[in-house]
Design a protein around this nucleic acid. Structure first.
Lengths: 221, 221, 221, 221
DNA sequence: CATGAATGAGCCTTCATTCAT
DNA sequence: CATGAATGAAGGCTCATTCAT
């Protein structure tokens, strides 16, 4: 039931493109430094030093510094995020949740843990999105397409059972994501401070559950 | 009832430090370019060109390029944000809202408009926060302190009237902010796409109102 | 009667574009080094050292290393060569030569002296032409157009007087140039060995005079 | 009567030094690229790619990139040019020319064809000579020595028959070469434009024949 | 006080060359 | 023997910063 995390997928992706050990170290070093100091404040010499290789080696495979950035970002956008999203949907479909609450708790915690497990990569992604918003557009489109159908069928049941408000599914996803993101971003960015996942999950869910409750009860109010 | 926007405050701040016309143009150019291309991708020559001054002039007053960044960031942190927050609180206190809903609608819309009005500045701030999280810590602390008391007294009334859940005020602020931020960040970053403020306000509020409704009614459900 | 030499024109051209003293030294250093070691074997640091400036200075005005090459080549192609050609024609027109022989002697010697006076520049030009033949095409076209009319009227007299073969003027120019070039190139390239201008002029002219004699006399032979 | 061309000699020379098939491809690739882009603008990787071998292989036999250049230039200087010159002389000696004119026509055309047939190699040679004039000195000395005796005996007959001016044989060679070179260099360098060998031969010879006619007839003028 | 030429450290990148596999 | 990953020196170029005018 545990989902594959980014690092594993990353490693797979790396193996797939048959990268040498040193090149993998280069990529890892880039990941670390880009997350730590940002892309522009990381010199290729820095990367070489941290990877324990010569500067030439950095360019042997990745051609340019930007190639290095792409090598980090592209698999995220093209492989990892979609794969994780799909996996996530499958997991949700397969798990027999008693009600929307337990479903939500699981989903929220799962995504939170996932995000916190991959802070470094997330941070680079956020940095790049801030600089180059087209990445966000692209990601949003991809994920929307991917989630649309899966989420619809997933929510249908809860909506019918009267546990989930009958809004457009993507609107629900967006709102929920908003709350989670609002909670997480500070923690992702400030890579040092830890996060009490359980407590946060509680807080977020308590809030979301009511916000997403069906409006039938409105009449009683 | 209209709040002072960042630009005006910025201008005031500039006048306060008695900046010459050229220096003001330098600052303005920096603002534009930092927002557009990011701090590291903006050269001092770029700034000089856009400001219509010589390279030397850029350094005459601000000493270093970082000084320029500070000159943009510092007033935000130390003057503008607090001032705006205070002003916002005052406005909220002074306005006689019939109920929590109309209060929320006003607050949400106001902050949304404010954020969208100052996209450029916001974008720089976000960029800098992503790179240097200490800014966020600092800002969070400042705003917390500032809002704590004001928000408490503001929320007290609605809580007593049974219109607002009896959670810690800052938790409420955080959740509400999360939702707003989740909605806005994409729009801030993608400086071109416009935002339908009224529609977004409706969506956000509909959701927030239920999420923040007192839990007493739970028993009846 | 002395024609303006390349260096002077070069200096004028430099003044025209208002180059600082240091930039002029940079250009001079480039000229020397490009001629000495070739463009690709000259580093911008070499140039900076020889010019006694910092490396940054080399790029301040000329933007790129290629800009430096262009700054040397362009005036040749666009200003200096045409100007010199025109000047040369004028000189030839103004001088009252008794016969074709004295005319030829003067012209040959003049061009020889001119070429040897500007060995360095010539060498760079030759190097560049060998690498980038389009320069030659361009130069040929320019000079052809320029010389065509002038040379025609100049040769007309000698042709009528039966001192010069009645070939197409440009063919004559080409043949004469060929002989001169054949003699000179080795001397231009081997920048050390001196050239006995008078002796060479004698040799070249003796040969040319007969080669360019009218063919009427053929019958008598 | 057809002389061996450079490529054949080159191939022989290569076989002589017992080069493997791959090494031969390396040499051939170098030849092509050096001619096309010049020595300094050709990387060893370029060569490896064009030759279809690995980078290591390029260095296996030729040790350094300069070794590759030498491997191309040296045989020219030491073997090919002399051999070709000798062959040429022999050919001239063996052929029974009716008069100087038919001799000259043959010689001029032969050398022209030869040069155009080996444009690529010629181009490299010219490039290298321009950069490193010592090659020219060396070549000139070698050829002078080689041609001196052979040419003398060859010209003797025509001089005695009153068909060739009684100048120093090498002076004649030099002048004739000058004219040919003046005509050919543009065509060698601009590797695309074709050359009308017959027409050019006519033009060149018509001119040379008179230029090199004995001066006895001068008295009649 | 503004200017912009000059600086030089540092950056990204290329490339000839080596060597373990 | 061939391979190609690795090397590191060197190159072209940028840029924040200084300072004489």
């Amino acid at each position: 039931m545990k989902h594959t995390d980014v690092e594993t997928l990353f490693a797979n992706n790396i193996k797939a493109t048959s990268l040498s050990a040193k090149q993998r170290k280069v990529l890892q070093a880039s990941l670390t430094l880009f997350a730590q100091k940002g892309y522009e404040n990381t010199s290729t010499l820095d990367i070489a030093h941290l990877a324990g290789v010569s500067e030439g080696t950095v360019f042997k495979h990745f051609k340019t510094k930007d190639g290095l950035r792409q090598a980090i970002l592209k698999p995220f956008l093209h492989d990892i995020f979609p794969k994780v999203a799909g996996e996530f949907l499958v997991t949700l479909h397969q798990n027999p949740f008693e009600n929307f609450e337990s479903f939500l708790r699981y989903a929220v915690k799962d995504r939170m843990v996932y995000a916190m497990d991959n802070r470094q990569e997330m941070k680079i992604f956020i940095q790049e999105m801030v600089k180059n918003p087209s990445i966000m557009t692209s990601l949003t489109k991809r994920l929307s397409k991917l989630l649309q159908s899966g989420v619809d069928s997933l929510f249908q049941e809860y909506k019918e059972r009267g546990e989930l408000v009958d809004w457009d599914s993507m609107r629900i996803v967006r709102l929920a994501s908003g709350v989670i993101v609002g909670y997480l971003i500070p923690n992702i960015i400030m890579s040092d401070t830890p996060l009490d996942v359980d407590k946060t999950t509680d807080e977020v869910c308590e809030f979301l559950l009511d916000g997403l409750k069906p409006r039938e009860c409105d009449t009683t109010r």
